[in-house]
Simulated assay, not measured.
Amino acid sequence: MRNGTVRRRRTSALVVAILLLGPLLTGCSTVQSAAAWNDPRHPVAGGDATGSGPAPLWTGPGQVQAKGSAESTTGRTPAYDISSLLQPSKKYLGVEINGAPDSMAPAEQFASWVGAKPNIIGQYLAWGTSFDTTAASNAWSYGALDFVVWEPWNTTLAKIASGASDSYIESFATAVRALNVPIAMSFGHEFNGNWYPWGTTGTTPAQFVAAWQHIHKLFAAEGATNVIWIWDPNDIDAVPDVQLKQYYPGDAYVDWVGVTGYWTQDGPSTYGSLYLPTLEEIREFTEKPFIIAETSVEAGSDESASLTELFDAVKQHSDILGFVWYDFDKGGDWRIENRPSLLSQFQSDVASGGFGLVVKPTS
């Protein structure tokens, strides 16, 4: 999420400002970025190995366990089997909200507002920051996936692909594997836009693909197959001339396709105009399931209709697994809690069916 409500209204001056101030504005949440940047609270690895116990290793597409045979013979707890989470029977209701999941109080407050527990909790993490084991543990204990939106500030995709960050990536992957709870993760989100340095103005599609594949391979080599990999372009309405296929790492490296798209008062106002063109283009090269990885509804006369369109899109399409609600006052007030009428509608839409997925097994 960028400052401002309509992405295509970005001026060149604002793009330059973001490039200069990137590390200070990491992610959509300024609070999260300030907390994440070189935060000493985040150890490289921590926590006891937990998860699915003796369940078999997941070796589906993109989740090959490179060190599986060694782990099975040395007694190491198998990597958490994420297969049941990839195609769930119910929908995901996610949230990005200030302070979570380092603290679960904001997520619990959100649950009290909307009448359902979120089962995905997003956070923005700057490149160079250690894996936040506290956040991931908190989310999992609550019954949710920690969704790490990993942002490559202060580097380049070419450097990442060349191996310049290998020690950092390996330590991150080692920490993910050691904690051994499932997490969701995207890298370089909204790469098809020109508002981030890893986007179209600063990199090539080949560099993005090479960096993504390199990171994924390093995670596999560390046995960190407990990750759901989310490839997350912005909806193409804002950037219609950028072809998405050239940025796709391949089915072996992606579990979900995440689409970022906001319901604004002067932009696309229906599923058919906001999401469908993007989904149709993506369907030309992959059948991976979708998740709306970042969204909200702008306040105004169309907010009720927009919220209806959002919920209907998720409920009516089996290949859309759910959505992640951006509950911040940034670049506009996107919060649900201070709009009583819209909140009541949100509660009804959640209760009317499809949501309520139990992420964490009870036994």
Rank of each mutant, 00 (worst) to 15 (best):
M1Q: 10
R8N: 13
T11P: 06
L14N: 02
A17E: 11
L25T: 11
S29G: 15
G51F: 00
S52G: 14
P54H: 11
L57I: 10
L57F: 10
L57S: 12
V64P: 08
L85Q: 02
L85V: 03
L86I: 12
Q87I: 09
K90Y: 06
G94T: 06
P101C: 07
M104Q: 06
P106T: 02
Q109S: 14
A116P: 00
P118A: 03
P118W: 07
I120P: 04
I121M: 05
Q123P: 00
D146G: 07
T156S: 14
D166S: 14
A173D: 01
V176N: 08
R177P: 06
L179H: 09
S186Y: 01
E190V: 09
E190H: 11
F191V: 07
F191H: 09
Y196C: 11
W198L: 00
G199A: 10
T200S: 12
T204D: 03
V209D: 01
A211C: 10
A220T: 12
G223T: 04
V227H: 05
I236E: 02
A238N: 08
D241Q: 10
V242I: 15
Q246H: 00
Y247I: 01
P249Q: 02
D251A: 01
A252S: 14
W263Q: 04
W263A: 08
T264N: 03
G272C: 01
E280I: 06
E280N: 15
E280G: 03
F285P: 01
F290I: 04
E298H: 09
A299Q: 13
D302G: 13
D302K: 15
D302Y: 12
I320T: 09
I320V: 15
F328A: 12
R335L: 08
E337F: 13
R339S: 12
L343P: 00
F346E: 02
Q347P: 01
V350N: 07
F355S: 06
V358T: 14
K360A: 13
